[in-house]
Nucleic acid binder design. Structure first.
Lengths: 218, 218
DNA sequence: TCCTTATGTGACCGGGTGGTCATGTTAAGA
DNA sequence: TCTTAACATGACCACCCGGTCACATAAGGA
């Protein structure tokens, strides 16, 4: 259910304004509670017009999410370009930093992603999440496989488990950064750039060496 | 905004039926989308009656969440009772297993908790989450402090950071167990009891020793 | 028995929603 | 200039919501 042809006939600037208004509304309210009335009101256009660009609410939302996956694809592409043969944990750290930059640059898109992740009444939810996960599974899965071959990470864990644990920590870090409700009093979002970078370093170090008392160097 | 006195005048069985219907509806739909019409319809009572027991939707919901915090309190109490001087990682593992049991026994209550955690339009959200977090901060924060004194975990990380990282992993594990949408293809929810226990063990081991190649024993 | 109080009832209200469509407006080709 | 097709408009629709309230019913004391 892509946008109708009429949408792409619009001047690019107007397309962008409509997209921005939709992104804002969906980010602030999630899919179900987002109001088309509010969107058209803020845009100063008639509701009928919106329905001439998109078949319905779902069509508008899918267009918004498509733009999100485009942005993720861009990000991953530039990430892969950066030294694919770097150290495993170095790359994980870069991925986390890239996530933080994404949130800084596109906070509303990230909020929409979280909405889809945690709200059940989103159209084609499985399909949408599947797309994003495919990206991350390919990227992190590949990293893990190579790192195990190179002996950089322990070989006794299956890669899906490794990816799961890594993503647990990275995702939560990003969630806490994006919405203070999710860091349990750590205050990640309010940290200075220096302290934030230290938190990143510590997080990656724990992923590498664990919480246990540091052993003798191997 | 507690239930009105009339609610507690009801036979216990009817109180329980009403609670169960509300729990189900809030678990399935979250706060905003949950429908009082649906609840009274399933209960076979008039909407006016519900408003004689509770001031409004918010009052009903707060009663439901209160029962949830009661259950959490019970769980933590029995958890603390179990060997408080056991090994740190052993206790973390027990906490994770207790979480899994809670989900098995009270799946709807756990879903409601997740709703509150991830949906913004919940009345008194900060207050409700604060209560639960207080429990967990006290428990895990205490564990961390003692474990650092005893030299069981590395001393270079502040406890809030340790708790944050621990909870990242434990919470995500529980979320994945409760709703397959949140494990990235790992299939935690569908695992056999044996495989599930192995996943628990591996998870705790990674928290302790990290993902890096295992060093020489210290 | 009768009166009073407490409890149960569901039609009804105002408000917001996604979606429609007859009508008005604009623009282009002949 | 006239015709025709594409686009813009907002009043309107059916639906569902949380919440109200005048009224019916049941219960308990005298």
């Amino acid at each position: 259910m892509p946008p109708k042809g009429t949408f792409f006939n619009l001047p690019r600037a107007k397309q962008d304004r409509i997209l921005a208004a939709a992104v804002r509304e969906f980010a602030e309210n999630g899919y179900r509670r987002a109001s088309l009335n509010t969107i058209v009101q803020r845009l100063g256009i008639a509701k009928g017009s919106l329905y001439q660009y998109f078949a319905n609410k779902e069509g508008l939302f899918l267009h918004v999410f498509d733009r999100f996956t485009d942005l993720v694809k861009e990000m991953l592409a530039s990430q892969v370009k950066n030294g694919p043969e770097a150290d495993f944990f170095r790359q994980i750290q870069e991925a986390l930093l890239a996530g933080l930059r994404f949130i800084d640059n596109q906070p509303d898109f990230y909020r929409i992603y979280l909405r889809v992740l945690f709200e059940e009444d989103v159209p084609r939810r499985r399909e949408l999440l599947g797309k994003v996960r495919l990206f991350s599974m390919e990227y992190f899965g590949g990293l893990c496989a190579r790192a195990q071959i190179n002996g950089i990470i322990r070989p006794d864990l299956p890669c899906p488990m490794v990816v799961f644990l890594m993503e647990s920590v990275l995702d939560r870090f990003l969630q806490a950064y994006a919405s203070p409700d999710h860091d349990n009093g750590l205050g990640l979002a309010a940290l200075s750039a220096i302290d934030r970078d230290q938190a990143v370093t510590q997080t990656i170090d724990v992923l590498k060496n664990g919480l246990g008392r540091v052993k003798a160097e191997g």
